[in-house]
Design a protein around this nucleic acid. Structure first.
Lengths: 215, 215
DNA sequence: GTCTATATACAGATAGAC
DNA sequence: GTCTATCTGTATATAGAC
């Protein structure tokens, strides 16, 4: 390895580190403050680099925004997780609903939804990316899950995609609305759990599920 | 009526007119552009007054924002309308669902939701006002409607507030999500109608509604 | 009360030294 | 590639004439 190669490697490594710092700082600020209130100055300061370095890595504010939200979306996929298809419908839905509502109500979940929705007009690229990486994927996997329950005669759903939307929409419920609008009164964990329980019951009653304990 | 009285009246009337112009212009711009992208200059220009006049009427940008959203909220109440309680549950729900989804998907509905949600952190006052004037009111009236159907033994709902949330959440569905995130593909009217129909069926099956045509 | 003109601050983006 | 210093535009808010 020549001297120049060593130098290039060190240089590249340093670049990647700074690039990553900038990306993390931008993600954090965009989610916390929104697009407009996040300035390139703030990003540079938080990342510990000069503003010009931010520009040399990402060109302009829009591109930095897209890159940082894509970065967040990757994190999101981990949160969704895969469906447990081995269990009965009720247990599966309970597990899914709990993971799903936790994600929606998490600081990150609220933040990314808020910033994508509010920038949807000006930055359609971002909200489209988010929709495909997040909600769309969740709905598709839940829909497939319903297909399997249908085949096992555990559920009787005529339109699984429709049912998946119905389920995720229901689970969302008042809790997410109150978080989104940041109302003074927020729902307690008990209230949310009770609501989810009732929603699962409604869903299973409506789609012909019978308790497995029948003789 | 003296000369001065006439003058005062004319002056006041002129003030009210300008004040109203400012309010209308601000509502429009805040909803279209969001909070940050709406400048006092633009409001003044659209209202046909000077910027100083805007300030003399509303003090600062935050107060103007609150006043303009309150103004929009009043309009919203009209859009929701009152429930028709004379009819059977199915007809009632169909009517409500259609009016409700129309409102959610209207340009104004999307705009006010978007701007309130995105400003919820910085302007909690506004989103709280909107939540109380909009979603909360709709849910309460639907809940009362369910109570009456319960009393008439047309439905069998254990928790009417919960059921109202379930219903409005379901109806919201994919259509509003896609509008909110401004995805390239939007649902057609037929798709939305079909989804609503299935959701009403699920709801009525789940809450023990039997068709009135039974002998 | 309403206007024009301006103070002040900060945004996004660039130039040029090292 | 990275920094400091700067350009240019525009924002909120105010001062002072009428």
């Amino acid at each position: 390895m020549t001297h120049t190669e060593k130098k290039e490697l060190r240089s590249r490594s340093k670049n990647e580190l700074k690039r990553n710092n900038i990306l993390m700082s931008a993600s954090k600020l965009f989610c916390e403050l929104g697009f407009s209130a996040t300035s390139m100055d703030k990003v540079a300061k938080l990342a510990g680099v000069s503003k010009q370095t931010v520009y040399s890595h990402f060109g302009n504010k829009d591109d930095l925004f897209v890159a940082s939200i894509v970065c967040k979306c990757e994190k999101f996929e981990l949160l969704v997780g895969s469906q447990q298809v081995e269990q009965d419908p009720k247990t599966t839905l309970e597990g899914f609903a709990n993971r799903f509502i936790s994600m929606l109500l998490s600081d990150e979940g609220i933040a990314i939804h808020r910033v994508c929705a509010s920038e949807a007009k000006n930055n359609a690229k971002v909200s489209e990316l988010f929709f495909n990486a997040g909600p769309k994927r969740v709905i598709a996997s839940l829909s497939e899950c319903f297909e399997r329950f249908n085949q096992q005669n555990l559920l009787n759903i005529s339109d699984c995609h429709c049912a998946a939307i119905q389920f995720v929409s229901m689970i969302r419920g008042e809790a997410v609305m109150r978080r989104e609008y940041n109302t003074q009164i927020q729902l307690t964990a008990d209230e949310i759990n009770s609501y989810i329980k009732q929603s699962i019951e409604l869903f299973l009653r409506g789609y012909g599920y019978s308790e497995p304990s029948q003789c």
